[in-house]
């Protein structure tokens, strides 16, 4: 079963990675994305200090001075270690919300494209969800469940569902109009098999491109909610929350806010550039 799937997907995009690496900006962004993910995964082994351990003798130390490479924060905690662990929480928050919202959204979009009777209903639902910006979901869900990582993940997942549903529906409609779908149907292939073996693999590229770009946006939104105090709560190290905590010390030790903010910028920029490059590499005509 799995071998057949690879047979279908493999010739569809020959050498995507090669095309991608030709563009220097794309190659750099791919490298940054890989490094960032590795740094987050390996945080416990890479971090030189305990991210929660306070050193009251070395509070607000600027980067490069003393024993701490990126300096220390207002409570004398090692910035580098907190950045590594913060990256972990930030990326996990983004991945979780994109994963949950993405799966629901794709299911919704495929269902709308495949079962045309419920198309109108599902797409009106998506329209209604789209009438609210993510920040409002964030505020409302934090108001109901109380601020925290869970509230952020729910809000961002909810905000991702209608976007993913639209993309996967329009892609699926194009694929479903192809002759090979007709052929598979004529052979008597069932709905589930048809969706799994033909629809899914052929819709993969646009969904992958959208997910890459969306991941950047989700990270940006999640860290903004954390910055506002609605997301990760102290003492959790999360990039947005760290930037918010550093605000108090902005005039004495700007690095406490600026380093996490730069971290978010670099991660989001890398995903955005990679997403654009992926789109060009997979299909130059494709515009989302």
């Amino acid at each position: 079963m799995s071998t057949t799937v690879t047979e279908i997907t493999a010739p569809a995009r020959p050498g995507t990675l090669k095309i991608l690496l030709r563009e220097p900006a794309a190659a750099v962004s791919l490298a940054v994305v890989v490094l960032v993910i590795l740094a987050a995964l390996l945080a416990p082994w890479l971090a030189p200090h305990d991210p929660f351990e306070t050193d009251l003798m070395a509070v607000m130390q600027p980067p490069g001075e003393g024993a701490y490479l990126l300096g220390t924060d207002g409570q004398g905690r090692d910035m580098l270690s907190r950045m590594l662990f913060g990256l972990r929480v930030t990326l996990a928050m983004g991945a979780l919300s994109l994963g949950i919202g993405g799966v629901i959204g794709v299911a919704m979009g495929f269902a709308a494209a495949y079962y045309r009777r419920i198309d109108g209903l599902l797409m009106r639902l998506a329209d209604i969800m789209l009438s609210f910006p993510a920040i409002l979901f964030g505020l409302a869900i934090a108001a109901i469940f109380g601020p925290g990582v869970t509230a952020v993940v729910i809000a961002l997942a909810v905000a991702t569902v209608p976007l993913m549903a639209r993309i996967s529906r329009s892609t699926a409609l194009v694929v479903l109009g192809q002759d090979y779908i007709e052929a598979a149907r004529a052979q008597g292939m069932g709905d589930a098999r048809l969706i799994w073996r033909h629809l899914m693999p052929n819709c993969a590229s646009p969904i992958l491109v959208f997910s890459t770009l969306r991941f950047g946006q989700v990270i940006l939104l999640g860290s903004a909610l954390s910055f506002l105090g609605l997301g990760a709560q102290p003492p959790i190290a999360e990039l947005g929350a760290m930037a918010a905590q550093g605000r108090t010390f902005l005039f004495f030790a700007p690095h406490i806010s600026v380093i996490p903010a730069i971290g978010i910028f670099v991660v989001v920029l890398a995903f955005n550039v990679l997403g654009d490059a992926l789109r060009d590499a997979l299909d130059p005509r494709l515009r989302i």
Binding site: A243, R247, P254, V258, L269
Partner: peptide, 22 residues
Amino acid sequence: SVAGVSVPVFFLGLVLIWFVGF
């Protein structure tokens, strides 16, 4: 424009406060 959609709003704000304001 890619940088513009990637920068956290608070980053821009804090940088302006630090330089122009402070």
